[in-house]
């Protein structure tokens, strides 16, 4: 029996987390949640998710810093990360790719786009 894949959602917004959970509700993934970058990094280290959906603007540690920490850690550096940006401006996207994100989506989140990007990275 194959183990279900895990997706870690990192966002400080309850609204966004709820929307993401509802979009992924019927997908074959187990969902983990963290409310800021630091908690996201710790959860990633502990749970080893198959993919991380990371918000950019968060308290304590923002998404870019959390991603830097993840990429610098030997044990979890290969986990695919999709950044969730509020602003789709080039500089945000460029920073995301510079620190090592695999893909990005912009808010408001489009369910089809998000599912397609997740499937591209880890399959359904």
């Amino acid at each position: 029996m194959t183990q279900r894949k895990k997706i870690l959602l990192v966002d400080d917004s309850s609204t966004v987390l709820m929307v993401e959970q509802m979009i992924l509700k019927n997908s074959p993934f187990d969902i983990l949640i963290a409310r800021d970058g630091e908690a996201g990094f710790e959860t990633a280290l502990k749970e080893r998710p198959d993919l991380i959906l990371m918000d950019v603007m968060m308290p304590r540690m923002d998404g870019f810093d959390a991603l830097r920490e993840i990429r610098a850690n030997e044990e979890i550096k290969d986990i695919p990360v999709i950044m969730v940006t509020t602003r789709g401006e080039g500089v945000n996207i460029e920073t995301g790719y510079t620190v090592g994100c695999n893909d990005y989506v912009t808010k408001p989140i489009n369910g089809s786009e998000l599912l397609s990007k997740i499937n591209n990275l880890i399959g359904s």
């Binding site: 309850s14 609204t15 709820m18 929307v19 509802m22 979009i23 408001p108 989140i109 489009n110 369910g111 089809s112 599912l115």
Partner: peptide
């Protein structure tokens, strides 16, 4: 399928907004 996914996203947004 895309239309259904879009509809699901819309419903998710409306549900979450209403819930919050």
């Amino acid at each position: 399928q895309l239309a259904i996914e879009q509809q699901n996203t819309n419903l998710a947004n409306l549900y979450v907004a209403s819930y919050r």
